[in-house]
Amino acid sequence: MLVKQLLSMKSDTAKPWIESGLIVTIKPDATLAEAAKLLAEQRIGAVVVSSNGRTPEGILSERDIVRQLGNHGPDVLSKPISGIMTKSVQTCTAGEEGMAILQRMTEGRFRHMPVVDGQGDMLGVISIGDAVSGRLKELAAEKDALTGMIMGS
Rank of each mutant, 00 (worst) to 15 (best):
H72N: 04
S51Q: 14
P28Q: 11
I23T: 14
A145F: 08
L32Q: 12
D144I: 06
I59P: 10
E62R: 04
G73V: 02
V47S: 02
G95T: 13
A35Y: 03
G83C: 05
P28W: 04
T31M: 08
A14M: 11
G118I: 09
K10G: 00
T13P: 09
G129E: 02
M1E: 11
L77I: 06
M105F: 04
L60K: 11
A140M: 00
A35D: 06
G83M: 06
E107D: 13
P80H: 09
T25Y: 11
S20M: 06
L60T: 03
L102T: 05
E138V: 03
E57A: 04
V47Y: 14
R63V: 00
S51C: 08
K10I: 04
G108D: 07
K4C: 09
I126M: 06
I18T: 13
K87W: 14
N52C: 12
V116R: 07
D121T: 13
G83L: 05
K87V: 05
I44A: 07
G21H: 01
T31Q: 08
E19L: 12
T91P: 05
G83H: 07
M85Y: 03
G134R: 07
S8L: 03
Q103C: 14
L136A: 07
G70H: 03
G21A: 07
A36S: 13
